[in-house]
Amino acid sequence: MRRIIAVAIGTALVVAGCSGEPESSKSLAPATVTTPTEQPTPTPTPTPEPPSTTPTTASLSPVGYKKAIANSETNLVRGVQRVMNAPTLEAFDQARAQLEDAIRNQRQALGDLEPPAAAGTGHEAALIAFDRYAASVTTNLATSGETKTGCGLPKAPAVRLYQAKTGIRTSIVELSKEVNRSLGKGINYGLRMTPPALTPPPQMTGRGSNGQIIQRAGSRGYGLLQITNNGSADVVVVVAASVPRQPQASIYVRHGSKTNLRGIRGSYYVFFKSGSAWDGVSRQFTEDCSFSKYDNRFDGKYNWTITLSPVIGGNASTSKVDPF
């Protein structure tokens, strides 16, 4: 019995069958090698992006825009009131900082609006007015930050508080005017939040009474000084033997008025100080101060008449002196 031989060539299997032909004369079928056919790489189809879900902000109608502007003012009214009602400088500083934050927030809210086309460039100009508010406050509070009066005296807290509140009011008025100018007719921004003008404290408006004796020391004499004040400021006339800080007597003379100082003794010098905002406690003018004296000594044996203003043909020279 013949054996069956299996030959593996490549991937084909050839089996020799039972045949009468000699094995040496058999021809083998050519081997076939099958190479796997490459599959084409599929091109990915782009996935379409989903439609945007961000809503498009529609422009406000003119009526809606006007309402938004009015709401902005409403949101600031209470902050302005807190500032104007502050009883002390410390309370004022806290309220002012809160108002500045509120102004900034309203500027942001207005900046997020989509104004109607009719607003044109006015909307951007109104936002610039809000941006200028902080610098406006700094400028308008400069006077209240000074601790000395114009005459170098300590400034009263009531005066500083008045000046500070007035500075904030001025900034609110400036902001309102700029917004109204930018947005045009029909916008009355600031009408509700602008506070009324404040009444100055007595330290800023004080005046002595004409002929009021401010100081008197020592015995009385028989001398008389008739005084006419033709100047534009109130004056305190001081009679002293040598220096004005040690007066024999002093008297208040309002501008455009006359008065007499009686009871002067001996020879003396005449000093005078002028100004505004009379402080009766310290017996000083606190603003616009000027200090002078007549150069010549007055003989107490005579009565004298002096006119406080330049006079044609006047015969008495004066000089500036140190504050007293």
Rank of each mutant, 00 (worst) to 15 (best):
L225H: 05
K66I: 08
N260Q: 05
T307H: 12
M193Q: 10
P202Q: 06
Q215M: 02
I214A: 01
Y268D: 10
N260K: 10
Y269G: 05
P36V: 07
S52E: 01
A118Y: 01
S282W: 04
F271G: 13
E178A: 14
T88E: 00
K155N: 12
G186N: 07
Q98R: 15
T318I: 15
I128N: 06
R169Y: 06
A277N: 12
L261I: 09
S242K: 08
S176Y: 08
E90K: 08
F92R: 08
E21H: 02
V243H: 01
Q203V: 13
T37R: 05
K66G: 11
R3I: 04
N315V: 15
T318E: 12
T286R: 00
S242Q: 11
V7D: 00
L127C: 11
M204Y: 09
V236F: 03
S257Y: 10
V77R: 11
A277Q: 10
L153E: 07
L183G: 04
S59L: 04
T228P: 10
A68N: 13
D234E: 00
A197L: 06
E178K: 11
N188P: 02
V33Y: 01
G313A: 07
G79E: 08
S59R: 12
C151I: 06
A109M: 02
K148P: 01
Y302Q: 14
E124A: 15
L60A: 04
V281F: 03
A126Y: 02
C18A: 14
T259A: 08
G221T: 06
G256D: 04
K165Y: 05
V179A: 11
Q226H: 02
S267T: 13
Y133V: 13
Q108H: 04
D101Y: 00
A134G: 10
T149G: 06
L127M: 11
E49M: 07
A29N: 07
S182C: 13
D295H: 05
A31I: 06
D322A: 08
T54Q: 08
T11A: 02
P116I: 03
A31D: 03
L191A: 09
A240P: 10
